[in-house]
């Protein structure tokens, strides 16, 4: 297994457990389909452009050795799955759990 993928699994172990907790506690994150759609639309456009620009202008570089080997616009494919899809999803799961703990969405009306 690619070490970079392994790292991402370790990286997201804590928030992934939070997401599972959220599912178990019936915090309906996936109910907000339009919010999720727009969030990923921005991440996959502006975020991709940001990443591409950073690589293009030499702000950071990706190591070649430990990757799966599929590159898109100079970015490893793991980036699209791990940080673009899983990252925001897990950040949001933590946020949703905190929102749930500090009062439901219904309170803000």
């Amino acid at each position: 297994m690619s070490q970079y993928v392994l790292f991402q699994l370790i990286f997201f172990a804590f928030p992934l457990s939070i997401l599972l907790l959220a599912v178990k506690e019936k915090i309906k994150i996936f109910r907000y389909k339009r919010t999720l759609f727009w969030m990923f639309a921005v991440v996959y456009t502006a975020g991709l452009f940001w990443d591409w620009l950073s690589v293009r202008t030499g702000v950071w570089t990706y190591a070649v050795g430990d990757k799966i080997g599929v590159w898109l616009w100079g970015l490893p494919v793991e980036e699209f799955i791990g940080f673009y899809l899983l990252g925001p999803m897990l950040i949001i799961s933590v946020i949703a759990v905190i929102f749930h703990m500090t009062g439901g969405i219904e309170d803000v009306r």
Binding site: Q3, Y4, F7, F11, T57, V59, W60, T61, D66
Partner: peptide, 16 residues
């Protein structure tokens, strides 16, 4: 930091 500095991982590196 772990992603960048753990031996054999070094997924990316900041140039600037």
């Amino acid at each position: 930091y772990i992603a960048m500095h753990v031996e054999n991982l070094q997924s990316w590196k900041y140039e600037k």
